[in-house]
Structures are given as structure tokens and as C-alpha cells.
Simulated scan of single mutants.
Amino acid sequence: MLRRVTAHLELDLAGETNMVFSVAAAHPASIVSESVSFELDGRSLTATELVDSHGARLHQLVSPGGRMIAHYTAEVAGRTDPTPVSDLDLVTYLRPSRYCESDSLTPTARSEFAGLSGHALLSAVTQWVDDKLSYVPGSSLPTDGAEQTLLARRGVCRDYAHLVIALLRALDVPARMVAVYAPGLSPMDFHAVAEAYIDGAWWVVDATRLAPRQSLLRISTGRDAADTAFLTSHWSDLRLTALEVLAIVDELPRDDGLELVQLG
């Protein structure tokens, strides 16, 4: 499997801004070739790469005001081995978080999925969220969490993932969010899915069913969208004026939705 990914961002910075970009393929991807660049009004800027505990590669830089262009491209061969499991992860990803209010949704989860466990539970939650929500671009706010998504009955990929994660945590299943490149996604964009810990491993859960899970490429991993945003900024206002994402694979897998899949 050979995946080719690109992310192109254009931004207007009102003044000096501290930015963290999360667009690079996470370690330990088998990167064949890669480039990352940042330009302000045509002048090259250098970013510092930081790597978190899940292998997410964050590029941080401080820039004066002006017109910024950020560009990332990579070719990744094959699939990586499953991510290691730590005891701390299994504690962290059981807790409620800002966008995954598992404590509020516990009565709903227990009512809807009573008696289910293991992979049968993952399948049931995936189908339930798919049935309950409509995928409507632009229908949710960046501050919406799983509870608001369920009330609105619509959202985008991050909203689907938040609801899946909240329901699973409410049922004592560790679950987390992953930002990915998703070959086959239409319209193309960054994508968000859930990972759930069952039977000693992390499994991909994507209730949107918009792209085959077998070709997803991990960018970042965390509690919810607060940990996996492709860009965070501080100090001055910025405006994202253009965003282009491309993810292709040499042979697009067929995902029947029933196979157990791990991110690689």
C-alpha cells in the first residue's frame, strides 16, 4: 500500500502569532518522502517539530503578521504495526472530556446497549450513531460536544466520533479520537474517527462510513477534537482563507464495515 497525502493552508495573521500545526503523518509511519514548509509573505520560516506520546508530530512556530502559506506532502509505504497500549491510556480514555460528555450520556448508553460487550458492542454503537445522525456539512459549531450532537441529530465527522467515544466511555470501554488522512473520502478533507480498546487492542470505529478504514493514515490522537486540531493559535487573530487536503492510495480497499480494523 502506497499512500500520498497533501495539506495546503493559507492564512492571514493579524499580528505576531504562536501557531501549532498538526498535519504530518504520525510516527512510526514508513515515510518514503516528505516535505513541510512555511512561508510568510514569500519568506521561508522554520518550525520546531515536537512529538507527543502517540507519535503525533506537531510543528510550532511564531510568526509576525502577514500572509502565511503552510504546505505538507508525504508518501507513506505499507502499514505500521498497531500502536502500543499503556495503562495510562486506559485510564485517560475512560474519563469524560470537553467534547465527549460520557457522564451525561451514561443513562442513554446503558439503555440502548444493555447486555452488549466486545466487538458486538462496537458494531451496535457504530450502527446506532449512523442511524441517529445525518451527515450535514456546516451543521455544527466547533464548540459542540457529543450531547449537543445527539440533540441536533446531525453533524460532521468530528461530531460522529465524539458521540461514538462518549457512548463507549459511558459503557466502560476506553475510546479516543484520531485525526487522519482518508483516501476515498468525498469531499476530501481531514477526517476524524474513533478508536476503541477491546480485547487488548485499539480498533477503528467510523460511524460516518465515508472512507475505507484500512487505508486511513494517523495524524494525531487524543481525548477529543481539542487534542487533534490541525491548527491551534495564540496571541493574535488569524483567518484561514484556503484549505486543500488530498489523500490517495495506490489501490483503494473495500470496507464492508464488518471487518475489525486497526489503524496502520
Rank of each mutant, 00 (worst) to 15 (best):
130 D>Y: 13
115 G>I: 10
259 E>V: 13
224 D>L: 02
73 T>M: 07
177 M>F: 04
221 T>W: 03
52 D>L: 09
85 V>N: 06
155 G>N: 03
114 A>L: 12
183 P>C: 13
117 S>P: 02
230 F>S: 00
134 S>G: 01
127 Q>D: 15
184 G>R: 10
208 T>D: 04
23 V>Q: 03
150 L>W: 15
236 S>I: 08
143 T>P: 02
65 G>L: 04
9 L>R: 01
85 V>W: 03
209 R>L: 10
111 S>N: 13
134 S>T: 14
142 P>F: 11
256 D>F: 08
100 C>M: 00
232 T>A: 05
169 R>K: 12
22 S>M: 09
230 F>Y: 11
239 R>H: 10
199 D>C: 11
67 R>S: 15
104 S>G: 00
168 L>C: 05
9 L>Q: 04
133 L>C: 04
144 D>G: 12
28 P>D: 13
207 A>Q: 01
107 P>Q: 07
234 H>G: 02
98 R>I: 09
151 L>I: 15
186 S>Y: 13
22 S>L: 07
185 L>R: 07
10 E>S: 09
43 R>D: 04
175 A>E: 03
28 P>M: 08
141 L>S: 15
6 T>V: 14
192 A>K: 06
168 L>M: 07
162 H>G: 03
20 V>N: 05
92 T>G: 00
246 L>T: 14
122 L>M: 05
246 L>C: 02
232 T>G: 01
188 M>H: 09
85 V>T: 15
248 I>A: 11
264 G>V: 02
159 D>K: 07
26 A>S: 14
203 W>Y: 09
244 E>I: 12
241 T>S: 13
180 V>L: 03
38 F>D: 05
131 D>P: 00
66 G>T: 11
147 E>M: 03
159 D>R: 08
201 A>L: 08
242 A>V: 02
192 A>H: 05
224 D>T: 06
157 C>W: 04
67 R>E: 14
120 A>I: 08
95 R>T: 01
195 E>P: 05
21 F>A: 04
245 V>L: 11
186 S>V: 13
229 A>E: 03
198 I>R: 12
109 A>L: 11
233 S>H: 14
16 E>F: 10
245 V>G: 04
75 E>L: 11
73 T>N: 05
132 K>Q: 13
211 A>P: 00
131 D>G: 09
247 A>T: 08
43 R>T: 13
165 I>K: 07
201 A>Q: 12
221 T>N: 00
197 Y>C: 07
24 A>G: 08
240 L>H: 02
238 L>M: 06
77 A>P: 06
146 A>H: 10
120 A>D: 15
65 G>H: 09
143 T>Q: 11
207 A>Y: 03
242 A>L: 07
219 I>Y: 03
225 A>N: 02
185 L>E: 04
122 L>F: 04
218 R>S: 07
115 G>C: 10
218 R>N: 01
15 G>C: 02
2 L>W: 05
4 R>A: 07
115 G>Q: 08
167 L>G: 06
